[in-house]
Design a protein around this nucleic acid. Structure first.
Length: 204
DNA sequence: AGAGCGATGGCCT
DNA sequence: GGCCATCGCTCTA
């Protein structure tokens, strides 16, 4: 993990599915008064324009407005009335696409994360989109913030482009009923920190 | 002003 | 692996 570099906005422009794959292996961190916490991204999902599962599909609202904003910013939303999910906004400004980060391998501030999620094992500490936001302390105050400058940051090991950190599998997205035929969930095949496996998964 | 709902998690078998 | 509690917010009227 030497030579960590914040991903520049340009990284997030381009095919959102490719961005989702290239985020695997990168480091997601959140700094707060309580300390710094984070881990390696092992699972992502792509949400594209024209995709019925995309929050932006039915037009711009107060909630989804950050998706239309600059690439490389955070889109944080509340789901099920109680859980926050974290996305990296992708595509050029005005094109509402994003990558949902679904799981991390815990690396930094493990004590702090365990304090935030009492009872969780290392395996379950950040293996889910709402689990990782709870563990890292990501919340609505981070919505729209610049991921290159913090307090929530995404860093690349050894700069980009770097080789994928192992075999990648693709599968249908979780909790999404539309577009089951699209394999837009990506995860590191060898990581035990992925939120869920899928028999349909295929190599990328 | 209110009904509907959700990119989930945790616990149970 | 499956079920369901849960609850604030979002959108529409």
């Amino acid at each position: 993990m030497e030579n960590l570099v914040p991903l520049p906005p340009e990284f997030y422009v381009g095919d959102t599915r490719e961005v989702a794959r290239r985020l695997l292996g990168c480091l997601l961190l959140c700094e707060s008064p309580a300390g710094i916490a984070g881990g390696r991204i092992v699972e992502t999902e792509a949400y594209l324009v024209g995709d019925p599962a995309n929050h932006s599909f039915r037009g711009r609202t107060a909630r989804n407005a950050p998706m239309w904003g600059a690439p490389g910013r955070a889109y944080v939303y509340l789901t099920y009335g109680m859980h926050y999910c974290f996305n990296a906004v992708t595509a050029p400004e005005g094109v509402p696409e994003a990558v949902l980060v679904r799981a991390l391998e815990p690396l930094i501030g493990i004590d702090l994360m365990q304090a935030r999620r009492p009872g969780a094992t290392l395996r379950t500490l950040t293996s889910g989109p709402a689990r990782l936001t709870a563990a890292l302390g990501i919340g609505p105050e981070h919505n729209g913030t610049d991921l290159a400058r913090g307090p929530v940051r995404i860093l690349a090991p050894n700069g980009m482009p770097s080789p994928p950190p192992g075999p990648i599998l693709a599968a249908p997205r979780i909790g999404v009923h539309a577009a089951q035929e699209e394999f837009w969930r990506y995860f590191l095949a060898e990581s035990p920190y992925v939120s869920r496996r899928d028999r349909r998964a295929r190599p990328v």
